[in-house]
Design a protein around this nucleic acid. Structure first.
Lengths: 118, 118
DNA sequence: GTGTAACATTAGAATGTTCTTATCTTACAA
DNA sequence: TTGTAAGATAAGAACATTCTAATGTTACAC
């Protein structure tokens, strides 16, 4: 993976990587919300919500439409945001491998062993 | 989303959120690697790779099997790691909404309007 | 124009992460 | 048992993120 690409992707993931921002994204996934809606739900200050929304906006994960004095925030990359949130909420069992398993994998994969089962 | 759950998920995402760690995960996805293999590929010191591997191990994203003096590292939650890396490499167009679109969505969704097309 | 509700911005202290340098452990071969 | 290759750990400086407190902006009703 190219270092520049890796950097860019890490920056994107960093925008997700905060409890409050995950909660904001999860809430916005249900529908458009303005800042005061979020104040009612999240145990943090308005200023702090605004700051986190700025981070999310810079990462192009959310955007807003102005409605008078209100700002209607929405998720601007639904498949990305939904994909990440869904992955996080799914169960992912931790696997373990022994040296022997690894050796067998190494022996099998390089030549795509045709003999076993095929 | 429960704040404790949000915290836990943010911690998990933080383990992904570093260029070097993404590169390590991408490399390990191709197969088991020891630390010196990674030294050859990544433009960082052995110490630094070790430190990043510790972060990944604490997050239960990787583990290793000892082979003499070598440590064979592998991805221990392949679906999670693969899912995140695949999402990142896919193209995710940024959508925009106007206030009018949002108003229409709000009007349609609450009652799951049956009249249009059905 | 004045007041106010909704939201953003700024500055800085507090906190957390990352990298560097030095040191340590372990496995193994001579 | 000495040397060396593989890898981990510790301490701290450098850097980045987060939160708090104060202030700024905008839209609108009166």
């Amino acid at each position: 993976m190219d270092p520049d690409v890796a950097y860019e992707r890490a920056e994107l993931l960093k925008a997700f990587s905060h409890p409050t921002r995950l909660q904001i994204l999860d809430e916005l996934r249900k529908g458009t919300r303005c800042v005061t809606d979020m104040e009612d739900i999240l145990p943090v200050t308005q200023v702090n919500i605004s700051q986190h929304l700025t981070v999310l906006r810079n990462a192009r994960l959310v955007d807003f439409a102005q409605d008078g004095a209100l700002r209607c925030y929405y998720v601007s990359r639904p498949k990305l945001v939904g994909g990440v949130l869904d992955l996080l909420s799914a169960g992912h069992p931790v696997i373990r491998k022994t040296k022997e398993q690894i050796d067998r994998e190494k022996a099998g994969s390089p030549k795509e062993k045709v003999s076993s089962r095929g």
